Amino acid sequence: MTPNARVALSAVGLVAFMGAMSFAAVPFYDWFCRVTGFGGTTSVSDGTGIEPTDQTVIVRFEAFTERGMPWQFRPVQRSMTVRIGETNLAFYEAHNPTDRPVAGQASFNVVPYAAGGYFSKIQCFCFTEQVLQPGETVQMPVSFYVDPAILDDPDGRGVREITLGYTFYEIDLPPEQAQAALARPVAEVPEGL
């Protein structure tokens, strides 16, 4: 093999390796954030085996929509004081003011980041896509607790307030919903208009 062919083959191999690493980076980063709580990523739990403590923390709730998402979205309660280790239930409200069904998916974050790995969701509307019909308003629950292990973490034990924020963004309607929307009857226009 000539030196030029060897250099070309090495360059192609390097490009292929970098391409493979770019595909692996997103799932790896997602896994890393879920395991460590890095970047405010929460954990998911069934809530069993957790003993509440006497210590409390204030949990604040925020709601946002991505640009172009037509829904109105807000927390029903802006904050609550919770016992660490105790299961809690909060609600968010979404309204579709349009004349068409709209599907949405929520992304979430917890601040401060030191609390992310200790904020555990048992059930959440963010686990699945949501579809609101024209004019529909729904209240969506999130069941959660703050893991008592936060009290053993040097970075987490000083946390007195945690903010849970959701951002809803529009997604394509599920196929069955899209078909139903297409099958809606069209209003007849009277003659002469």
Rank of each mutant, 00 (worst) to 15 (best):
P70C: 04
D99Y: 02
P112W: 04
P97A: 03
R83A: 15
N109E: 05
M80R: 14
E93P: 00
R83W: 07
S79V: 01
I50E: 14
Y92I: 06
T48N: 13
D46N: 15
V110S: 11
G68R: 07
T48Q: 13
G104D: 04
D54Y: 06
H95N: 07
Q72N: 13
D99A: 14
N109Y: 08
N96R: 10
F64N: 04
Q72G: 06
P97R: 06
E86G: 00
D54V: 05
H95A: 10
D54W: 03
D54E: 10
S107V: 07
S107L: 08
E86F: 02
T41G: 02
N96T: 10
D54S: 07
T65H: 02
E86V: 03
T42V: 01
P52A: 10
N96V: 07
P101F: 03
V57W: 03
W71E: 05
A63C: 08
I58T: 15
G49I: 11
L89A: 12
V82K: 04
R60S: 14
T56D: 04
T48G: 10
P75H: 09
S45M: 08
V82N: 05
F73E: 02
A90S: 12
G68P: 06
G47C: 07
E66C: 02
F61V: 00
A94R: 00
P112R: 08
V76E: 11
S45K: 03
V44I: 04
V111C: 05
M80Y: 03
Q55Y: 05
D46E: 06
P97I: 02
F91P: 01
S45H: 04
D99S: 14
I50D: 11
V76P: 02
V111D: 12
R83Q: 15
V102I: 14
N88I: 01
Q105E: 11
T56N: 05
L89S: 12
R78P: 00
R67Y: 10
V59M: 03
R83M: 13
I50Y: 13
V76Y: 13
V57K: 05
T42E: 03
R74C: 02
V102C: 08
H95F: 11
E93H: 04
R74N: 07
Q55H: 07
G47A: 12
P112S: 08
P97L: 08
E86A: 15
E86I: 04
T56E: 12
G68M: 10
A94G: 11
R67Q: 13
Q77R: 12
P97W: 05
N109H: 06
E93S: 13
S79P: 00
G85D: 13
V82I: 13
A90Q: 08
Y92K: 12
F64W: 04
F91S: 05
P52I: 08
T87A: 11
F61G: 00
G85P: 00
I58N: 12
M69S: 15
S43H: 03
A94E: 01
Y92M: 11
Q77G: 00
I58G: 06
G47S: 10
T48V: 10
